[in-house]
Amino acid sequence: MPNNSNTSFTNRVALITGASRGIGKAIALELGTHGAMVVGTATTQAGAEQIERYLSIAGIRGMGIAMDVTDPAQITSGIKAVQQSLGGIAILVNNAGITRDNLLVRMKEEEWDTIMQTNLKAVYLLSRAVLRDMMKEKNGRIINITSVVGATGNAGQTNYAAAKAGMIGFSKSLAKEIGSRNITVNCIAPGFIDTDMTRALSSEQQQALTQQIPLGRLGTPQDIAAAVAFLASPAADYITGTTLHVNGGLYMG
């Protein structure tokens, strides 16, 4: 287990939303392996149990909680439970995200609103909920998982790209607001990562995509988790308000 001074999260509590699978799970395991106490959220109780299972197999202290990240009451009670059993949250990773792709001319309001709620409003609600503890500690890390399409745009994803670009503006503003309290706010923008979300693409689509990636492959959840661990670590003390692109060269910001 790596345990040098650059990656020491011992006894710090990290909250990762959308942690039952994919990128969120990789982030939870990565931070936990570096010594953090890990809290993963999932939308269902079954998802929360899944999180508890993989944390316990990996020997990581932490918990899984069922939480609808668009519901302020559930966020408040979930965070209270974490504070009572593990302590104040020092690292927040807003990872939960969904897609409702459609051409704009056919996009229903429900498809637009759902994406804004889950991908953008949740970031506001969760950040607000953890800020007091971070301000008291004069220390904290907020890491928002955005997307390359927030920077490049993508046909069929006006809603998703708008929410992801919104996260970047949010992060820059909050970084300015609370920088004086030693709290950093950054984004990580994954490119095309091999998860359930990208597996929904046809193999022709996947092939065409891979041809545009200088490093010649889709990314892995681990590629993103390593970048999160870096931004959460003391090595990134002086980095705030930035977006770190992790995309194999697909887009160079």
Partner: peptide, 9 residues
């Protein structure tokens, strides 16, 4: 403004 929030806390 942030100081005043912390003061109330």
């Amino acid at each position: 403004s942030l100081d005043t929030v912390e003061l109330v806390m």
